[in-house]
Structure formats: C-alpha cells, structure tokens
Design a protein around this nucleic acid. Structure first.
Lengths: 337, 337
DNA sequence: CGTTATGATGAAAACGTTAACATCCATAGT
DNA sequence: ACTATGGATGTTAACGTTTTCATCATAACG
C-alpha cells in the first residue's frame, strides 16, 4: 500500500507538502500541486482514512438509524432513504445503516464513531434513542416523524397538508359524505392528518359528522374493523380517508368481503403511498410522501449542522402530494374515474 | 475523550497493560484484567477505532453493495438483508450500504476501506463490479444470484427447487394444464425456474406443451402481455406459474380486465414473495425466498473467508418454499381453496 | 544595499492504539 | 545458594496522516 511518503520520495518533496497538495492547501504552488497530484494518481494512491481520521478527530461516517427495522412497514423506506441520502453525501463519507433496536446500538453511539446521525423514526418509542444521541453531543437530524421538541432538527412530510389534500380531492370529485379512519392515538401523524382533513371540510363549509370519525391504529386489521362500522351506518359515507395505506388495505378487504364496490359504492383514499398501493385492486389513490426527498433534505441539514453545531435547529415540513389512481369515484362527470 | 493512557494512569499500570487487558490477552493476570475493565467502564471508555484500525491495518467495516438500488424491485430486499447480516455481525463491525451504481462506488473499493464485501446482486450487470472487488483482493461473497464462476463464494436461493415446488403445488391441487411465464432471457434465475418447473412436470408424467411456455422479462407489463396470449389460447391452462411476483401482478391485471376469475377460472403462482404479494386480490400464492437467511448465511461465509482467505470458495443454495395464499384453486375438493 | 515582508517548503510532534522487544521478579531445578 | 525458566508488566517504536512551528528564498521597500 502506498503512502504520502512514497509520493514524497517520488516527487522529491516532503510528505508534508504532499499532504498539503492533495488537500488543496493554498500554501502550495499550483504547479507543484499539479505535479504531485499527477504522481499520486499514477501511483494509484488512496488515502488511509484511519490515519486521517485519527489526527483530524473525525470518523467520516454518517449513521442512519432505523426504527423497528424488524417490521415490514419500513421496508420500502430504506431504499428510498438511502437514495436520498447518497445524493447529498460526498463520496468521502461512509454511510452505515443500523436498526435502533439492534443489540448494542446504544453503546456504539459516540462522537468518535459518528460525525453525524440520521434517525428515520416511526414512533415515539424512538425518543429514548434520539435523546441519547443528542446528549452524546452528536449532530442529529430526525427524519420522517414530526417532533414536538424544537431543539431537535427535524424534517418530515407535512401530514396536515396531506390530510387536507386528501379531503380536498374527495370534495373535488363531488363527495360530500367524507369519513376518516384515524391513525394510532397519541401519534402526532394521526392528529395532524385529522386536522388537515377537518381544515378541508371546514373550508368547504361541511360540518364534521361525529359518526364519520372512526378510530384505528394504523394496522390492516383496524382498517378492516373501522370500515365495517362505517358500512353499518344508516347513511354511509361515499368516501373514506384512511390514515395510512395499511388501513386502506384493511378497508378494501372489508368492502370486498361484503361485496361493496370500490370506487362504485365507496371511494377510498390512503396515506403514505407504500409500494403496494399501486398493486391493489383497484390501485389506491393516496398521499405520497417522498421519503427520498425527506432524506435528502435531512442530509443537507445534517451536514450544515455538522459545520455549525450552534446554529438554530431547523424543523422542516415537506409538502405531500396526492397521487391519483383508481379508488376514488368522480361523482361529477359520472364516469367512475 | 478518555484514552487507554488515562486508564493506565488511574490504574497505576502502563497503557500497554490496559490495551492487553481490554483485548483479553492471556498475558494479563485475571485479577488485574478485572480491575482494569472495571476502571475502564467506570470512566466510560470507548476505544478509538481510527487508532486501532490504523495499527491493525483493518477497517472493521463490511460493505453491502446493492445492484440497481434505483429500482423499486429491490426495496423489500434491503431491510431483510440488513436484518440477516446484522444477526451474524459482531457489534464491532460497521456495516455500510451503497449502490453499485452510486457515483464513485468503484473507486472507493479498496482493501483499506473494507475488510469484506457483500454484493446483493440482481443481474449480470453486476459482474464488472464483482470482479473489480475480487481483483482488489477484498474478501467477497455474492448474495441472491446464482453464479457460474466457482471461484466466487456465493449464496442464493435454489431457483430450481422453487420452480419445482410451484409446479408441484399446482399439480397437487389437481391442475394438469400448467403454463409458465418465463423470466428475462439470459438470466440464470429464469432458466433455473423453468428447469424446476419442467422437472416437476416430467416427474408427474406431464408432457410440456410448447404453447404453455410464454416469454416475459420480469416486468409487470410483460406479465400482462403474456397472460393475454395464454388467455387467447383455445385450450387455456388452468394454472400459470409466473417467473416472479411482478409478472404475476401483470397477469392478475390481465385477468381482471377480461373478467377472468382468480382462482375460479385460472390459478396463479408467483415467485419471490415480495411484500405486496399478501396485499393483492386475491393474495398471491408464491415462492418465498428468505432474503434474510441468505444474507445471514452469506455473512457467516464472509467472516470465515476473512479469516482464511485461501479456503476453497463455497457456493450454497438455500431452499425456497411455497407460501400458500389464495390465488390457486384446489380442483380436488372443489372449494376453491 | 540592508531590512522586512511574503510565499513556499520542511522538520518534528501529535493523534490513540498495538506489538516487538526488554525487563523484572518469583519460583523451580540443581 | 545460584542459575535457568517463565509469567507479568513496562518501554518504545510504529501505523499514515495533519498541523504547528521553523526555515529559507525571493521579492518589495526605503
């Protein structure tokens, strides 16, 4: 393995000069810089990051931590997230991926090992981990879940505008009886989505019907149950906004089991745009949140924060947008689309 | 940040002794080892891996490289793969994840940065990368795709027994007219799956019908088209084995568009058990390959190989098994299940 | 022409660890 | 009692960088 000293010898300069040349120091005459760069590349030099990191007291490593990597839910996130992160991350950085629950995850968190940490969070259970990271003094950005604590940099999709968009779409398609199957109680995403939904209703002069708020917990089963109670109502809604895609699947199954046509008799809107949303029957109209965009934005934030640890923590919400597929009937020009 | 020298001072020994004690060297008296360990943990000592790696000439890093991280196909793999790898990987190792196509991926591959590399491969396009890694002298295991070259350690699912299992299941449910929609030409997985399918047919004394082999390329669209040509046949098959789940989705859509009942009129079997397979309507009977198991096994292999680089490269095939859902009709006791 | 800036380079120390080699002390063998 | 043996610990150098400080030309200045 060749080192800067080898290059120095070949170039007839000191290894210090080589180091400076290779790192673009302004102290080196451009002509020698070029010469050294050429020699280095001719010799196939690759820097030893261990040595580099030892002296600079960095790790050149960004850690991505996933909550509940065990659960299938997060599957599609991972690839998207990585894509977004890589897009923003200089090639010099290593990106490691671990589950928050992985054994030893907590202990291995220290500033020596990570220059910065991204947490792709899905639930409040992650808070313990998040605060551990923060108290270890490692630059941190929490992704994907909206946080209350303003001291933690955070980027997530705007659940409220998402809920709003969902209800708006139903309205624009002519629906006036619009129900909601709510997410897990206590989760910020649940309340934000409901808030958005109500915003829209109120904006359109619809008064919320208590029967049309039915609880769920983000699971398929809860969606199934919730849909059944909606279908049992004397005045059924014509459209149902499901707090996430999983519950929308459950709702679909309930309709299917009772022979209720989608979108003929009832329209369904999901939230999250998980990969399977395009494969359901009919394909699910849902709110797309761009995980890769969130991840990319979060990475930018993290990098900035690594440079200026004392800057004000930023919280960003990225717009979510509706992707129209075939689970919502258009009541206005009567073609079921 | 506290170092072994601080500990040495506190314990009244040399830093060498501390190093040895912490690394479990037999040269240290058990009693001092305990004492030092206690002090270290009291002082919240965490080793500086950069320094460690510098002198041991290791990186403590395993790289996981994904082919075509851009494509949605690989989505579900990632989480599963990580789960499997982490299970086998000592906490001391860092695990990095990158796409094979990521800019700069090739250059950053050198023995200094990676102690070992896992390639989660999906197509022959990865070969260039694979051979680059091998020629760089980094211990390597290729996952998920069966390789011809015996010099490269490899663990994948047994596509042939998978294909066999699929056709067997159809047979056991009473089907005798069993077609196959084939995967991308030239891919080993395609031919292996077809081979397994034929094995089963022949074992049951069925003679393959040329009309029942219809080409595809693993895409949804090709599945759609293929299914249409099958449905156009005068003697339609009663069961269709699709080379992967994507094509099965396409086939489902084709049936749906023509009003053909699944599994009433035609049964469908997929391959891969992607997450969405359980959400289709009806849920798809398919061949499950355990990515996490493949990844775990591959990691074991890699670790072994890192210790003994000169050992014979091993190639392993892990059994795939059928998961029965609701897309195959049981023709024998006539209850459609 | 002498002094002083200035710009380019070099020498040496430091980062935190491991490992080769040296030292010390006690015990066993004669 | 004296030396070999070996077990436990210490000294020191090394790993490949960056960085501080020193050196040395050379150009600028009066």
């Amino acid at each position: 393995m060749i080192t800067i000293k080898d290059i120095a010898r070949a170039a007839g300069v000191s290894h210090t000069t080589v180091s400076r040349a290779l790192n673009g120091s302004p102290l080196i005459k451009p002509v020698t810089r070029e010469r050294i760069a050429k020699i280095a590349s001719d010799m196939n030099y690759v820097p030893n990051y261990s040595a580099k990191n030892l002296v600079t007291r960095k790790s050149n490593t960004i850690g991505l931590f996933f909550s509940s990597i065990e659960q299938g839910t997060s599957s599609s996130f991972l690839a998207d997230a990585l894509k977004g992160i890589r897009r923003e991350l200089d090639e010099q950085y290593m990106l490691t991926v671990s589950g928050i629950d992985d054994p030893g995850s907590l202990d291995s968190i220290n500033p020596r090992r990570y220059d910065g940490i991204l947490v792709m969070s899905q639930s409040e259970l992650d808070n313990r981990f998040i605060y551990h990271v923060q108290s270890a003094g490692i630059p941190l950005v929490v992704l994907n879940r909206q946080l209350d604590d303003p001291s933690i940099p955070n980027v997530a999709s705007d659940d409220r505008v998402g809920g709003h968009a969902a209800a708006d779409h139903a309205w624009q398609c002519g629906h006036r009886l619009i129900a909601i199957i709510e997410g897990k109680p206590g989760f910020k995403s649940s309340s934000e989505r409901r808030l958005g939904y109500m915003d829209s209703l109120i904006a359109h002069g619809l008064s919320p019907n208590p029967d049309y708020f039915v609880p769920g917990d983000y699971s398929i089963e809860s969606g199934y149950a919730a849909m059944n109670t909606l279908l049992d109502l004397k005045n059924r809604p014509t459209a149902v906004f499901c707090g996430n895609d999983d519950m929308a699947i459950g709702a679909m199954n309930a309709c299917f089991d009772r022979g209720v046509q989608i979108p003929g008799e009832v329209s369904l809107i999901g939230f999250d745009d998980m990969i399977f949303a395009q494969y359901t029957n009919p394909p699910l109209t849902t709110i797309h949140k761009s995980v890769s965009e969130i991840a990319a934005e979060g990475t930018k934030l993290l990098l900035r924060r690594m440079e200026q640890p004392d800057a004000e923590p930023v919280q960003r919400l990225l717009g979510s947008k509706l992707v129209q597929r075939r689970s919502v009937a258009n009541l206005i020009n009567k073609d079921g689309d």
